[in-house]
Write a protein that binds this DNA or RNA. Sequence first.
DNA 1: ACCTCAAAAATGTGATCACGATTTTACGCC
DNA 2: GGCGTAAAATCGTGATCACATTTTTGAGGT
Lengths: 227, 227
Amino acid sequence: MGYPGLNQFPLSMDDDTSIHDQVYEALAESLIQGQIPPGKSVSLRTLANELNVSPMPVREAVRRLIAQKALELQPSNKRLRVPSLSENRLLQLMTARQWVEPELAFLGAQKITRDVIVELKNDDERLMAALSKGDVDGYMKANYAFHFRLYNLAEADLFLDMARTLWLQSGPFMRVVFGRLGTVQLPQDHHQELIKALETGDHAAVRQHMAEDVHEGMELMLEALKG
Amino acid sequence: MGYPGLNQFPLSMDDDTSIHDQVYEALAESLIQGQIPPGKSVSLRTLANELNVSPMPVREAVRRLIAQKALELQPSNKRLRVPSLSENRLLQLMTARQWVEPELAFLGAQKITRDVIVELKNDDERLMAALSKGDVDGYMKANYAFHFRLYNLAEADLFLDMARTLWLQSGPFMRVVFGRLGTVQLPQDHHQELIKALETGDHAAVRQHMAEDVHEGMELMLEALKG
DNA sequence: ACCTCAAAAATGTGATCACGATTTTACGCC
DNA sequence: GGCGTAAAATCGTGATCACATTTTTGAGGT
């Protein structure tokens, strides 16, 4: 009990969204932003109580997250927890992110509008502001917003789902690593150059910058895991 | 009611496997082998009755399959069905399969043993036999066995999961297309050359043959969708 | 103080019931 | 006979209960 993380739940974003979808979104956001650390154990009833719902919709949300490997059932006692990353698994995450995210950026670039570019610049400013304030959580949030604002344009639901799954899996560990490094050493992002490429319509360059951005971030995590 | 597909359930492979895992495996196998056609609607209670279990474990299995986009909830009436493939989605499936499966084959090749090569040859013989008999279902089954016998060696659980998800999504449509083409025009597989490359230890060639195998099969589906 | 072990609390799993919405069925009307 | 409409069946969702297993707790003895 009493882990700080886990978003406070509005849990009523929409009346026609089912409860288990709301629970899922809340949990997913918490995981992506790294608000629940690797190894942390969770439980259906505890979650249900925190969210003031019955255990039932929580079970369905959790089952979905297990399918995405964002949660796991410990084989020993069948209890629920946030997975820890082995080096093997981190390498797979790295490879897969470099498959899908440059492609999503490339596809997104083809649908870009001036409005979205403004929003992307906004995200990047919030990211920079968080960096200078030493606000790791703000950094995580802004970085996520930036990437998926672009990915959402791609009209590629399968790729988008893959990317979400990969972020769900890397979020908790990423937050720990970045928290340890401090915001000073956080990846010098390629967002500015990427935005420039978006403005000039150089789609290939967008893909390339995204590849480098992903690579650098994951490289930091790999070093942290081995070191 | 009364669709021929859906495997007859042993549904008791192991006593320590939970019921919803058994339900999931049964449904997943049926989908991968294309025994349930695209657009087919299913229901929790019907499945539960067919399997002689309560709707509860079925709900969890289904929720998992929805997360993998192997099933979907129709937005209009929130009822369950097997998704149909748009051209957009099929292209994404094609791309993703060509990312992950050659890599899995490459990794698997590094752990290959003589025993597994024998089993792979067996799978390929069953595949050829099915082809000559015009047995599309046998072809689907043997082809699946061949691919995942190799992939299972890779010790890459994330990639393996990705591949399974992709096969879950393509299975139903693939079965329809191949059934329409007849076994005569079925893809001239690269399995033989791939096995040769395994035997000579040419890992790069294994990757390349797998890429071609996947590409050709998906190309057939793409033509069928457009034509 | 520290270990031991039994009682209590908590956990995931599965079954059953209730509810509102949608689909299907079937009856009566034209 | 064909068609619209009301009744019945079926759907997914959520809550609640029961159960076996595991974890935590706490009291007792050394």
